[in-house]
Computed example of a mutant assay.
Amino acid sequence: MASGFLTLISFFTRIPVGRKIMYSEENFKKSLSLYTLMGAVIGLILALIYMVFANIRITFVRGLVLTMAYVAVTGGIHLDGATDTSDGLFSGRTGDRVFEIMSDSHIGAFGVICLVMILLSQFVFFSYADMSACMMMPVVGRASLTASCYNKKYAKKTKGMGTLFVESMTLQVVAANMAILAALIIVLPNSAVLAAACFASLVSAVFISGWVEGRIGGMTGDTCGFVTEMTQIIFMILVLFLKG
């Protein structure tokens, strides 16, 4: 499990793990129960940066630094998926043409719009939210993804990096990730606000993935990134709204 968790860190972040990780499908599948915990690692880094800039008078500086830090730590992996998905799903095309657009290395107009919206949302959120909310943002995004992939199939005919992830989301894996999410909510300040925002985000993720499934017949690695980033935006908005 520990080796699998390090594999998750090496796959989905740019955090150095200190040694060469030997990939194993079995270890990867087992480690998916800790996928939300990986989000907590990212969140902890954001929380530490927040503490450094906690007393700065111009909060937009903190927002900018945290936004850049999130992109740097994650390597923009979900941002890339979100932009590709936006280009494909909003292109007006159907069938395999959607997958061709999503696989194109060039970014289109809808991808640019999506990227700007995500980064701007993060900038505003990190500028005004407290440390607990900043830490929970990547946690909620990853917990929501596990819920949204449950009982879904991989949409593409050819197998990709997201195949094992999507098709390994069993009820047990989702339950383990929800337990991690609940534990973090309980120990952090403003638990009521975080719990309400998390619940609504989880529901939103399921609806978004259902819409994606209706369009392309399932989930892919790119759509996983799309669900993660969209859910995080929903969480951000709800936290700021509920706190007033």
Rank of each mutant, 00 (worst) to 15 (best):
K157N: 07
P16Y: 08
M161N: 15
R93A: 08
E167F: 04
M169W: 09
G63I: 04
A175M: 14
C198K: 03
L6T: 07
A40W: 15
L188F: 13
A196N: 06
S201I: 01
F60E: 13
D84T: 00
V187M: 14
C198M: 11
A143W: 00
M219Q: 07
F28Q: 04
V166E: 01
S33M: 15
E25P: 11
G95T: 01
I21L: 06
F125D: 03
M178Y: 12
S204K: 12
V227T: 09
S31M: 04
V212N: 00
V140M: 13
V203K: 03
R19S: 14
Y154E: 01
L89Y: 01
I113A: 13
S209L: 03
I186V: 14
S148P: 11
Q232F: 11
L64E: 10
V174G: 12
S209E: 09
F126K: 09
I9L: 13
A109R: 07
H78C: 08
F123S: 05
A2S: 14
T85F: 02
L202W: 04
G218C: 05
A109W: 06
A147Y: 10
F53I: 11
T146L: 04
V212M: 01
A72T: 08
R97A: 09
G210F: 09
L34Y: 14
A182T: 12
T146E: 05
T67D: 07
C224W: 02
E229I: 05
I180W: 06
T228W: 10
F123T: 09
A200P: 04
M117F: 14
M51T: 14
E213F: 03
N190R: 15
L46P: 08
C134T: 11
M230G: 07
C224V: 10
F5Y: 05
L8W: 00
V116S: 08
N190D: 15
V193C: 02
F123I: 03
N55G: 15
L242N: 09
K20V: 08
M102V: 02
D80I: 05
